[in-house]
């Protein structure tokens, strides 16, 4: 069984896909940083940042709805920001009664709330674009090039490789549990929450042991191919002139957003 649902990469062979992964990682982070730096209510700058995103989407041939459709993943978190609607001083816009509170939405509160949501919404779409246009192993290579310690990038590479294998195992365990959780007619299935947690914990323990034993076998396979404790990697990516041009241009535009957002 393949869990292709885990693959976020969509190959369209576009210009953006062919850029060096470092360029995409750096520009994505700069873009998200820029959004965070823009002051509340910098609508022109937010609008331009959105156009930048649309332009990058168009260049990557993914279709206009691609990042939009997937952009709601961070939305539930907006709940955490709801309180600023009422807590920031400003002129009242509307007052309503909720349970036993009288809540007043202020204009400054609304401004801040919408700004937070817009920042998050733009940032998450750029991150979606990054993984849709860059294969995950290439992102790991980019991190290597950008001096993330080798031990971390190696763990991340292993994690990515074995994610699929272990998630397969989890689903076999879950299916086995389901196959055996029948309920007598009229009675509720399964025991107490504690009992169910125990079953889940046994599954986690089971999975842990299998993973542990697998790491032994993988270690042997590494030894058999000359591993002595030092990891050597080949750096397959080279920055071309186009990569430099795109980086400079994109960073310049992002800097412009800051300028516009502050005037």
């Amino acid at each position: 069984m393949h869990f292709d649902a885990f693959d976020r990469y969509h190959d369209t062979g576009s210009f953006i896909h062919r850029l060096d992964p470092r360029v995409k990682v750096v520009v994505t982070v700069a873009y998200i940083l820029s959004n965070a730096l823009l002051p509340d209510g910098a609508w022109t700058a937010f609008g331009l940042a959105w156009l930048f995103l649309l332009f990058a989407s168009a260049l990557s041939n993914l279709g206009p709805g691609f990042t939009f459709k997937r952009s709601f993943i961070a939305l539930p978190f907006a709940l955490a920001a709801v309180t600023v609607l009422f807590s920031i001083p400003g002129s009242p816009l509307s007052t309503f009664h909720f349970l036993f509170w009288n809540l007043t939405i202020t204009d400054m509160g609304l401004l801040r709330f919408v700004s937070i949501v817009v920042r998050s919404w733009l940032s998450v779409q750029m991150a979606i674009l990054l993984v849709a246009t860059t294969r995950f192993p290439d992102i790991v290579h980019a991190l290597e090039h950008l001096r993330v310690p080798a031990i971390l990038t190696t763990i991340i590479a292993f994690l990515y490789r074995y994610l699929f294998v272990l998630v397969d195992e989890v689903f076999r365990l879950l299916r086995a549990r389901e196959a055996r959780s029948a309920a007598a007619p009229g009675s509720r299935s399964g025991g107490s929450a504690a009992w169910r947690a125990r079953v889940a914990g046994n599954m986690a323990g089971q999975l842990f042991l299998r993973s542990y034993e697998r790491s032994d076998r993988v270690y042997n396979a590494m030894l058999a191919r000359g591993y002595t404790g030092r990891l050597n990697t080949i750096h397959p990516h080279e920055m071309h002139r186009m990569d430099y041009i795109v980086t400079v241009l994109a960073l310049f535009i992002i800097l412009l957003f800051q300028l516009i957002g502050r005037i």
Binding site: V140, F158, M222, T228, N232, I234, P236
Partner: peptide, 23 residues
Amino acid sequence: FQNPDDQLFSPTVFEDVAFGPLH
């Protein structure tokens, strides 16, 4: 090794086949 999931521990085919010569 018997189980190719133990033998192939790198994300891409290239990296895996290169592992031995690199080391």
